[in-house]
Amino acid sequence: MVRINGFCDTLKMVDKIFSLFFHQKGRKVSDTDQPETTRRDFLYIATGAFAAGSAFAVWPLIDQMNPDASVLALSSVEVDLTPVEVGQSMTIKWRGSPIFVRRRTAEEIKQAVDVPLEDLPDPEPDSARAAKPEWLIMVGICTHLGCIPKGQSIGDERGDYGGWFCPCHGSHYDTAGRIRKGPAPLNLVIPPIAYLEETKIKIG
């Protein structure tokens, strides 16, 4: 067998690793019982390197499907809350998703605060959901399979807990947007919110 000089040391090391995985018939074994580096080893390494290179080349083909720069650029919006009266709701769009803004009544807040955490499938105190208790701001997408729950408009069905109700497969959310009953596993998501002024927020 011809030796491939120059690469020898590296090859020998890699070869040792390879030899753990491949048993080669008829390969030469030197006196010291060290397997010799052969053309075949070189082929293995070349193949391996080629495979690794191809894997890198495939990445752009996969990554192009991820949200692009223009989609990500819409990642934050500013919202003026002043038009919303107590007991009213507003729906705005953020990253293409509806955001539920609800100015809760004192009674709704009390209902949400009074629930013992043990009763919740996804336990979260009301304070963790609304920095200012009056304003509940959530992503209006059911955490089950993505429908938009009812409860934003007057006359909507609100479910058994007076908050939101997803008609798709029957998920009930309470007045803090927490899941109470139905197939949805989690509470409605709270987006990143920053208060810019008393009644002005930035989402995202």
Partner: peptide, 9 residues
């Protein structure tokens, strides 16, 4: 999901 949709929705 985001990869399939190419966006958040």
């Amino acid at each position: 999901v985001e990869w399939l949709r190419g966006g958040f929705v």
